[in-house]
Design a binder for these strands. Structure first.
Length: 420
RNA sequence: GUGGGUGUAGCUCAAUGGUUAGAGCAUCGGACUGUGGAUCCGAAGGUUGGGGGUUCAAGUCCCCUCACCCACCCCA
């Protein structure tokens, strides 16, 4: 039975968090191992930053006006009076670490990846949790659009390696500080002209972030938005050129993508390239990964003027689309009977482990039947039988549980048999 | 934050407002102290999410609350 807390209510995992139990955790391990393997082929290095950060980091890095900062952060005061926040995203931590350790002096570009939990106080629903896990990729110090394409290609390669199908890659350019203000102004003006045909949310977005009107799902808003000006026509020569080169490189890689002029990222710091991989086959939370370029973030953050680009991939969303069944581990189960045999069995378990074989020894067993039953239920590949006779002779019986066959021999012989 | 749906054993589900809330699977034990999955027998497992109300009587009806799921919002 579950225990009870002080309130008398059963103690359960915190709302929006989940246990990842054996049986499922193997899928996570496999995804993590494949991610690590593939990213390192592209020269990325793992960087592990703390889960807690100074609250101020996200105000400066993520943006004061974002939903994440205004209403989704887990923030608390520690015993030293510091304001601490459970990271809601990873990019600011990387920027902080680069500045703190002057990693930019080691030479650019700096390619980092990380896999771990993030925390956002959202109302949970399918594909959205309060503690969720991301694979995060960041590159600082390279402005060449060939890198933008390389990153999208790497993301594409990972999804293919994991067997994720049915996805669509969307790309766009959101301009830079030179050209986006003019676009935002034009957009706001057009929205204002037809505001009586927009929903209440969009009227609010008109002021705060007019680009997000493109995200609205209300049909009347979508209809109006179709006639709104597009960012593409407002891009400055530099941004236009960057975007064209990015697309040319993607074509060279043979990565399929669609230019979605309405693709707007939720965070304030994006410039130029943005991209997203969506799975249209199911669910509302369909963005598996999303990212883009953030050339001004490091500078705004108070660090060196270094450009950056990266993406985050949601592991829960990814794994939900994975039809991957990990293979069961093969292990040896040691059964025994009698005190002398038990002592010998313990020695033998150690012998097999040292030989590289996963070995579990029976402790509370009664009859052999009882012990075999447990071995079978746990899924043992082999059972080593250590009885009175075997212990006396030094010749033990090894049963192959799947085949039902049994052979006798000295421990060395049985070990080599199990290894082959 | 706003809406909708659902809460009965570990899991999947029964129970017209009317005895002591049942079944299958799973668990544990026995048949069975030298060989697993099978079979048979048995046991254990529940404050029907919690609180209040209506009623002679509530798992069932009403209200509140909590949790989970789904959607909006937002995003990974």
């Amino acid at each position: 039975m579950s225990g009870e807390g002080p309130s008398g209510r059963a103690l359960t995992a915190v709302k929006g968090t989940h246990d990842i139990l054996p049986g499922e955790v193997e899928v996570w391990q496999k995804v993590e191992a494949e991610t690590k393997r593939l990213f390192e082929l592209y020269g990325y290095k793992e960087m592990r930053a703390p889960i807690i950060e100074p609250t101020e980091l996200f105000h400066k890095g993520t943006g004061e006006t974002t939903d994440i900062v205004t209403k989704e952060m887990y923030t608390f005061e520690d015993k030293g009076g510091r304001s601490i926040t459970l990271r809601p995203e990873y990019t600011p931590s990387v920027a902080r670490a680069i500045v703190e350790h002057r990693l930019d002096l080691l030479g650019t570009p700096m390619r980092y990846y990380y896999i771990g939990p993030m925390f956002r106080y959202d109302k949970p629903q399918k594909g959205r949790y309060r503690q969720f896990h991301q694979v995060d990729v960041e590159v600082f110090g390279e402005k060449d659009p060939a890198l933008d394409a390389e990153i999208v290609e790497m993301a594409d390669a990972l999804l293919k390696a994991l067997g994720i199908a049915e996805t669509e890659t969307l790309v766009n350019s959101v301009g830079c500080r030179a050209c986006r203000p003019a676009f935002s102004a034009a957009l706001r003006e057009r929205a204002l002209a037809v505001q009586d045909k927009l929903c209440i949310d969009c009227r609010r977005k008109m002021e705060t972030n007019p680009l997000r009107i493109f995200d609205c799902k209300v049909e009347s808003c979508r209809e109006q938005a179709r006639a709104f000006p597009k960012i593409t026509g407002f891009l400055c020569p530099e941004c236009r050129e960057h975007f064209a080169a990015f697309r040319a490189h993607l074509d060279r890689y043979g990565v399929a993508y669609r230019h979605d002029e309405n693709l707007v990222r939720g965070l304030d710091y994006y410039t130029k390239t943005t991209f997203e991989v969506v799975d249209n086959s199911a669910g509302q939370q369909n963005a598996i990964l999303g990212g883009g370029r953030y050339d001004d973030m490091m500078k705004d953050f108070g660090g060196p003027d270094i450009c950056g680009i990266g993406f985050a991939m949601g592991l829960e969303r990814l794994i939900a689309r994975l039809a991957l069944k990990p293979e069961a581990r093969r292990f040896l189960y040691v059964v025994h009977q009698g005190e002398a045999a038990k002592a010998r069995a313990i020695e033998l378990a150690r012998f097999f482990r040292r030989g590289g074989i996963e070995t579990v020894i029976e402790f509370g067993g009664r009859s052999f039947k009882n012990q075999f039953g447990r071995a079978g239920k746990l899924g043992a590949a082999w059972v080593l039988i250590v009885g009175e006779d075997e212990t006396a002779k030094g010749i033990f019986q090894l049963k192959d549980m799947a085949a039902g066959t049994q052979v006798g021999g000295a421990p060395e012989v049985l070990l080599s048999g199990v290894r082959s």
